[in-house]
Amino acid sequence: MHVKFNISPRFSIPFISINTKTESADLLQLGRNIERLISKRLIVGQSGAKTVPIPLYQIIRFQTAEKHVVCETIEATYRVKYRIYELAKLLEKDDFIQISSSEIINLNFLANLSASPSGVYQVNFTTGKHSYISRRFMTKLRKELLK
């Protein structure tokens, strides 16, 4: 697709537009992806004494670790001030879903699910890591994926 810059003093606030003859599912998804990339939705994380704004799309998961909630990105792990239940509410409209009482994951990093012979549901991330989803949250995950 051709990318064209339209520069004019009229555009006081820059915006991106997709010009097309007909609307298609691919283009709508492209729009959503661009929106996600430029999203101003950030969460503030702490790494030592440093405070870092982290865009939501970079976050793989939030989890409880040693009585604190941390968020994990590909590069690092940051401590956040929210509780898991607060994040679940805060992020319900984003691509995040709670998979247990101590973990929320970003669906965009979800590779697949597997089950152990003893019946433990394992969540496999695109990063190669894994976690566990409780049966209670399986129904919610299914509903979310059906949307």
């Binding site: 998804q29 590779a111 697949n112 699910l113 089950a115 994926l145």
Partner: peptide, 23 residues
């Protein structure tokens, strides 16, 4: 129970694949 677990995982994996194809 174990058959239902397998079926559930299979169904969710299909939904995940569908979702990634749309992204």
């Amino acid at each position: 129970f174990s058959q239902s677990i397998k079926a559930q995982v299979q169904q969710i994996n299909q939904l995940i694949s569908k979702r990634s194809r749309n992204c």
